[in-house]
Design a protein around this nucleic acid. Structure first.
Length: 677
RNA sequence: UGCGGGAUGGAGCAGUUGGUAGCUCGUUGGGCUCAUAACCCAAAGGCCGUCGGUUCGAGUCCGGCUCCCGCUACCA
């Protein structure tokens, strides 16, 4: 194992098209912050890097929608994000941004170096171009009819209806999602990073050299590498971003995934003129904190860029987390399904550490986890308040009561005392080991064990009883209790920085580094402590209910938003309508199509014949419950093979605001085969 | 479609190299009353998703299946 002299910690750059939410925090910033604080307390040299990712198509679109410039958008969110991180206590050494000139320079330089060294390949291809907006269209911003299933709102990369992967050129009647116009095909030149040429190197460096990475990270990388890598475009046709610094690249910018990780480097440059020791000295340990969606960029693409450049170090570990859900649903910026950091800070002033605690205790380290307000309350009330806060309070209140806040002199230590004090060092070692393995949830649990130890010690020693018979003995008991309390300020400092500041205030002591943990003389006899307040307070049901109601309101608002009725389509002639032969039929049989989520295979009596129809309704209806139902069926639709089954016709469904499907059925039964007109 | 991760007592999670299944919360009973009705002790509660295989022995290794989540497809 290499002996590192310093640690460079990067945290994924949040995308500046929205505020930061608890998912970002749990996945990236809270663990990264714990790690940074822990290392600093150990006297290590640390640079903790963050910043906003401000380029890319979504930001330009948002700007367009709101009638402002992209710079306005990123200024707004960068300011908001930076401020909320600062108030939340994420201890970045620098929080930069990718629209900063220093970043543009850095990214340009690296691109240019690779370009001059011949590390890219150039390719010209035809891509859809929106003439009105004078821009090429990303796959996702082209819509049209799916060539496979006929669904009219397929995207350029995929059809949401049948699930097939598409390329934009396959779409029938392609339309720009930006202008609604028909896009034209236009030639354009781009530079590609030939990832395939680095396969051998990646196998050696990553698959052989970093088997210790977390299984979710390692597994994903392995599958990518084993599956064969393709060259990836590093440039885009867009006017928002870092301009491509070569001839013949007008109106082209660096693709965001190329430019964003370089943001870590430019941020370091902004932090210190001595930035090269952080990025080019093999005695520096580089650790990327990210979410799982970023694994491929940080484990494969960015390392390839660094490797191709030649003078940079490579990540030593990439402890990516899985995702955090909120009350059972995926967190979503666009659906406003999130707990926003800036709102939390307003609504729970002074409770920054509570959120850090809950997000760490329930961190999605090995799999997706769920954040619920109920759990938030439970952990606050039963763990922070009842275990940690309560112990501290007991120790301090007794000290006030018996000794007017003066730490008593130590007497003879009993076996119990010695065991309790020795346990501190055991817990210390466990916390260190867990943090070293990026298991912050486990580390926090061990830290909590110290508070539990304190409670148990007091319960066993019973100073409130002993005081009546042996006041001398009580002095030692309280001395030991206070040393445990003082040790708590050290062990919890990486996790609950604000609360430990507060606790040190109660104890009237200075901040200590990690190596003091385990000492049993942190508060000398005679030291005066202050009158304590509560370290944590209970969170009442009403507070939680308010948050839950807020989320329910969001859910409702989303439904209303989705309920906006689509505008009428173009007129069609009566003949057009007459072409469709819609009948009433009855479902005779229904079964799930194996290996699909949405499809049911139905046998329908159409009055004309009995035929098989495959219908995408399995998410809303069970096969058993629909047998015998009358439905409306388009009988003269061209047959279509779905999952190897001939589907002869289409069942008409009404789609509700929430996306659910309902049968269109006569109000009272009619004869099968009745025409609908 | 392909790939990755997950499935463990009521809930949320640990289980490192295969050797008597743990933790936090909740529940029940007891103790204590210094403390924010907090704390301490004890108990109940699991054929570790499912089927098969390797092994003296499998939560742990191998294969099939089912179900969730994610990536593929620029929201951590």
């Amino acid at each position: 194992m290499t002996d590192f002299k310093r640690t460079l910690i990067t945290s994924a750059l949040p995308y500046a098209n929205g505020p930061v939410h608890i998912g970002h925090l749990a996945g990236v910033y809270v663990p990264a912050d714990i790690y940074a604080r822990f290392l600093r307390m150990n006297g290590q040299e640390v640079a903790f890097i963050g910043g906003s990712d401000e380029h890319g198509v979504p930001i330009t679109l948002k700007a367009k929608n709101e009638g402002v410039t992209p710079q306005d958008i990123v200024d707004k969110y960068h300011g908001m994000i930076k401020d909320s991180f600062q108030r939340f206590g994420i201890s970045f050494d620098i929080y930069a941004r990718t629209s900063d000139p220093i970043h543009h320079e850095t990214a340009s330089e690296i691109f240019l170096k690779l370009y001059q060294d011949g590390k890219f390949i150039e390719k010209t291809s035809e891509q859809y171009y929106d003439a009105e907006n004078k821009q090429f269209l990303a796959d996702r911003y082209i819509t049209g009819t799916c060539p496979k299933c006929g669904f009219e709102k397929a995207y350029g990369d995929q059809c949401e209806s049948c699930g097939s992967a598409l390329s934009p050129n396959e779409l029938i009647n392609p339309k720009s999602m930006i202008s609604g116009n028909v896009p034209e095909l236009k030639e354009t030149k781009h530079w590609y990073l030939p990832l395939d040429q680095y396969e051998g190197w990646l196998k050696e460096w990553l698959l052989e050299g970093h088997k210790e990475w977390k299984s979710n990270v390692y597994g994903q990388c392995k599958s990518w590498i084993d599956g064969g890598l393709q060259p990836r475009a590093v440039t885009r046709d867009l006017d928002w971003g870092v301009p491509v610094p070569v001839e013949g690249a007008e109106n082209k910018v660096l693709y965001v995934w190329f430019d964003a990780p370089i943001g870590y480097i430019s941020a370091t440059k902004e932090l210190t003129p001595d930035w090269e020791k952080w990025w080019k000295n093999p005695e520096t340990k580089l650790v990327h904190f990210i979410g799982k969606d970023n694994i491929v960029f940080h484990c494969i693409i960015f390392p390839v860029i660094l490797k191709a450049e030649g003078s940079y170090i490579l990540p030593e570990n990439v402890p990516a987390n899985e995702f955090l859900n909120l009350e059972g649903d995926k967190i979503s910026t666009s659906r406003n399904w999130a707990v926003w950091l800036h709102e939390y800070l307003e609504e729970f002033p002074g409770k920054e550490d509570v959120l850090k605690y809950v997000l760490t205790a329930n961190a999605p380290e090995t799999k997706d986890n769920d954040f619920t307000w109920k759990d938030f309350q439970t952990r606050n009330n039963n763990e922070l308040v009842a275990v940690l806060g309560n112990f501290v309070n007991r120790a301090l209140v007794l000290t006030q009561k018996y000794y007017a806040g003066k730490v008593p002199e130590i007497g003879e230590l009993t076996e119990t005392d010695k065991l309790a004090l020795a346990e501190i060092s055991v817990i210390k070692a466990e916390v260190e080991k867990s943090i070293g393995q990026y298991r912050f949830r486990e580390a926090l649990k061990f830290a909590m064990d110290l508070a539990r130890l304190g409670n148990k010690y007091l319960a066993d020693a019973e100073p409130w009883i002993v005081v009546k018979t042996d006041p001398e003995r009580v002095k030692t008991i309280m001395y030991v209790s206070l040393q445990i309390t003082a040790n708590l300020t050290v062990i919890f400092a990486p996790f609950l920085p604000f609360s430990m500041d507060k606790l040190r205030g109660f104890l009237n002591m200075d901040e200590l580094n990690w190596s003091n943990l385990g000492r049993t003389d942190l508060l000398p006899g005679g030291h005066q402590v202050n009158t304590p307040e509560l370290l944590f307070e209970k969170i009442e049901d009403e507070v939680i209910e308010r948050q839950v109601n807020k989320l329910l309101a969001t859910k409702k608002a989303n439904e209303v938003a989705n309920a906006t009725v689509a505008p009428a389509k173009e007129n069609c002639t009566f003949d057009d309508f007459n072409k469709m032969d819609i009948r009433t039929g009855t479902i005779l049989e229904a079964e799930r199509v194996p290996k699909t989520k949405k499809l049911l295979k139905l046998t329908i009596d159409t009055g004309i014949d009995k035929r098989t129809v495959v219908s995408g309704i399995a998410e809303y209806y069970n096969p058993e419950e629909i047998i015998g139902r009358q439905v409306s069926i388009l009988v003269n639709l061209e047959p279509k093979e779905l999952k190897g089954i001939q589907s002869q016709g289409m069942i008409l469904m009404a789609q509700d605001a929430d996306g659910s499907l309902k049968f269109v059925t006569p109000t009272t039964p009619v004869k099968n085969g009745s025409e609908i007109k």
